[in-house]
Nucleic acid binder design. Sequence first.
DNA 1: AATTGCCACAACCGCCGTGGG
DNA 2: CCCCACGGCGGTTGTGGCAAT
Length: 306
Amino acid sequence: MGRQPCCEKVGLKKGPWTAEEDKKLINFMLTNGQCCWRALPKLAGLLRCGKSCRLRWTNYLRPDLKRGLLSEFEEKMVIDLHAQLGNRWSKIASHLPGRTDNEIKNHWNTHIKKKLKKMGIDPLTHKPLPNTTTHDSQEPPQEPPKEVGKNKDIYAFQSPTMEVQEEDTSPMSGPFDDSIVEVFNGFCTDEVPLIEPHEINLVPNCSVPSSTSSCSSSSSSCGGGGGGGGVCNNIVFEDLEFPNFDLFNNMGFWDDIGDDFISSSLNLLINGGDSDRNASVEPHPPAPKQFPRMVLDQESWKVELF
DNA sequence: AATTGCCACAACCGCCGTGGG
DNA sequence: CCCCACGGCGGTTGTGGCAAT
């Protein structure tokens, strides 16, 4: 017997997601909300395992994600939190709204680790590295404090004084005060280009295999799907309902937003930010290897969050 | 201009915790 | 209490882009 694999390995697609797949996933999430990940691929007409869908959504497609490099402040927080929590990226991420554990983990491995080493700090222990003579850099390691277990003041910045409780530190109720929230509200300079909502139009997924009983569970919004050979022209999201999309509802993202706005923003997700290059966006560019990194300015999504 | 090496990041893999039957 | 399915997490890998040669 044994446990059934989370997904049938056969016939499942792997590797980078295409724009088409992203559309399907976004459409499904918008119409059905987050439901059983295992069943999602079938319902959404995706040849992916549920796990892959979940990851794609949480790490990349979720509209509340902040994109772009971590700001200096966020970086400092990551370091501080890492000193207290270790490699518990999800916990760390929970303190950084709009950031994912994967993103933080990658950033840590590629940027912060090096930075710390350069500063003469062991990124694992947050203690000063043993005095190596191999300091290649011009800048000598900073004098590490004597007390390094708690790494307060160990870095060249003033980190937010925070003690991380093991449990129940929800993202926004954490140790941060308003001033910090304010920082979050802003974006680092290298952040994404702003896209005007009107630049976008959304083409939902319609290529759900007609064979599947897609979306049978609910929505009529998939109704057009598959019908008559999979050609699906510009059914816009105004026609879609957004039931049970708790994520958005809870965050207040969709309050007071017209459906046009939603459509626009979603299309930004789907088509990327180069809509001006591609004024009349052809939904299916010739064989996109990978959907270009979707960059989304928070402004596009945020509606009176604060 | 072509090739090679490095870097950054998206995605995958496997394990673990949890809840339901 | 046990088994199983599921979701989540952290580590690792694969791949595309860029810089150096």
